[in-house]
Structure formats: structure tokens, C-alpha cells
Computed example of a mutant assay.
Amino acid sequence: MKKFLWISGLLILGLIIGFILINSSGKYEKMYDENTTPKATKLDKINEKSESTGDIKKIPVKIKIIEATQFTAKLKTVGTTFAKDDYILSAKMNGEITYLNADIGTVVKKNDVLAKIDPEMAEANYNQAAANYNLAQKTYSRQKILAEKKLVSTQQLDGAEAQYQIAKAALSLAKINLNNSKVLSPIDGVIAEKFVNLHTFSGIGTPVARVVNIKKIQMEVGVSEQNIVLIKKGNKAFIKISSYPGEVFQGYIVNMGLQADKDNKSFPVTIEFDNIDGKIKGGMIADISILLNTYSEAIVVSFHLLQQTTGGYYLYIVENDKAVRRDVVVANIQDDVARISDGLAVGDHLVIEGHKYINDQVTVTIEK
């Protein structure tokens, strides 16, 4: 009896295991069918339909008839603003700074005195030199009159002339020293930096103040060898600064370098624009678009239509219900469009949809 029960248990266990294996196999096959069978592409569906009907395969495409349009070529770059007129003024003599009018933000006029360095000594030396000069000049004038009357010797006249020339040179030197005792503003502008304090000692060459005029702003950008030949002095440039969203400032190319930078091989180009209200400050980052040229009858296509090989770019057009590959020359690329200088003509039927599914000389059908 026990042997019978033991055999019955084994049979039941075997049936259960077999049932589980059969169900698992079915699920696996279903999963394989769902996950590994590739989905049919648009081109596969076209091929299946053509094979079932026996018709010639026609790939549907959409086209656009090429028309000439105006295109303005631009060079986009980034630059940093700085004042056109920017001067760091330094002391030209040794001494104590006894007068200082150079607080940051102070508005100054051309030739305003910003600092004085021991002016009393310079003024005293100048006054003495001026007195000596006046005396020597009068003495020389009298000696010339007396020499004409033969009342003084030639030697006496020469001595008076020499004293006059010495006094004249001394006065010129004293005048230079007097001028050097003053630090003058070379422009109308604003004090941007102050480097010294009142009653401190300054030596020759010590920076005293920095004066800028921000009524005109400049930027210097680097331009590649390929683009520098397209730029001319006077070309317009449009400037956008993030601090003033929605505003566009118009400037011009005012200078172009003749020598490329030895490190990055770019050519320096200077752009200038008016800043009458002074809202633009030095050191702001600007997005710049330099106008290179305007083409009145250009062929322009969307950049995403271009297909690229190692040899360049190509597009597809439709001729006699067939796709025809056209190798093209791309002259300019900006934003999402490209100007084609060779390879397309006005009136060509450019494929604008379906170009990813066709090859050269395949039969196509044009969809509306």
C-alpha cells in the first residue's frame, strides 16, 4: 500500500512540472514575438505594398519649388565692451601729493587739474627762471643797441646773448617742471579709478587716476582667416547685451588688424558704437552680428535638408518622377538656413519631406 502511494505521488509531481514548463514556453515565444520582431518602417510598408501588387515602388515625397530670395550674410561672435577713450594718468615728478580731485565717479573736463605734486617748489623755480629770463632779455636788447653805436665790444654783446639763451632754456625747463607738477585730464570724462591718496609721496611713473569717456564704446573680436576677407571697414554690426533685453545697438567696423594673433591665428577687428546716455559700462559681454554682404537673389534652404558626406553636402530634387541627387556648395550657414552658391537653380523641385528614405534615381510620387 505504501509503495502504491509513493508511485502515485511521483506521477502527480511529474504532471505539475510538465504543466509549468509548457506554460513558460508559450509565454517566452509570445515575448520573443513582441520584443524582437522589428517594426516596419515607412519604406518597408511601401516595399510590401509594391511586392504584393507588382507595381514599381514609388516613395512619397513633398517638394518645394526653389525661388530666389534676399539673404544677408552675418558673422556672429562675442565681445567685451570697453571705453574708446581710456587713460591711466601717472605722476611725472617726485614729491608729495598736496592736491587731489580724483574721487571715483567725478565728472571732469579736458585740462582739469586732478592732482598737484609739490607745486610750491615748481612755481617758485618757474618764477625765478622767468625773472632771470626777463633780465637777460632786457640786457641783451640794450647791448645790441649799444653795439650798433660801437659803444660795447663784440665780446660783450656775445656774452649778453649767451646769458639770454641760458635764461631762455632755464625758463623752458622750469615751465616743464611746473606743468609736470600737475596731473591734468586729457579728455572730458569720468574718474574710473583712483590709485593714490592725498599727502602721500609719488614717484615718476606712479599711477594717479584713470579717466574714461564712455560716450563711445568699443569691442575687439577675433576673426578667422576665412572671414576676415569678407569684412570691410565701415560694415555694420548689431550688438545685443543681456542686461538690456530687447534692445539692439548699431555699430560699425572701425579698425581691422593686418597681422593674425600668433596663438589663435585670428585677426583683431574693432567695433565701435555710440553710448550717449552712458548706459553701457565697460566689461559687459555682448553678442555681435557683423553684416558681411547682402545677396538680392540668393538660393536659401533649411539646414536640416542638407545631407553630408566626406566630400561635402548634397540634396535631392525631383526630375521626371525620379529623385536626383545634387551635390551643392554651401556658402553660408546661419541660424537654421544655408545659402547655396552652386548646385541648385531657381525652379528646381527640392525634396523637403521624405529625403531620408530615397536614393539617387529612385521613383517617387509627389504628395501635396
Rank of each mutant, 00 (worst) to 15 (best):
K2I: 12
K2L: 10
L5S: 03
L13P: 03
L13C: 08
L21R: 15
M31V: 04
M31K: 06
P38M: 09
K39Q: 13
D44H: 10
K49A: 15
S50K: 13
T53M: 05
I56M: 14
K62S: 14
K62L: 14
Q70F: 04
K74S: 10
K74G: 03
L75N: 08
K76D: 15
V78N: 00
T81Q: 04
K92D: 08
Y99I: 03
T106E: 10
V107Y: 12
V107G: 14
K110C: 07
A124N: 09
N127G: 08
A130N: 09
A131P: 02
N132P: 14
N132R: 10
L135K: 10
K138N: 12
Y140H: 12
S141W: 04
T154Y: 15
A162T: 15
A169F: 11
I176K: 13
L178G: 05
I187S: 02
D188F: 08
K194V: 03
S202A: 12
I228N: 03
L230T: 09
G234D: 00
G234K: 00
V248I: 08
F249S: 07
Q250I: 09
G251D: 06
K262M: 02
N275V: 04
I276Y: 07
G282Y: 03
A286D: 00
I288A: 00
S289K: 08
N293F: 11
T294R: 07
S302L: 10
Q307K: 08
Y313K: 06
Y316N: 01
I317F: 01
V318W: 03
N320M: 08
D321I: 13
K322H: 09
A323E: 02
V329N: 06
N332W: 10
I333Y: 06
Q334M: 04
A345C: 11
V346D: 09
G347S: 07
D348Q: 00
Y357Q: 08
N359T: 15
N359M: 15
D360S: 08
T363P: 00
V364Y: 00
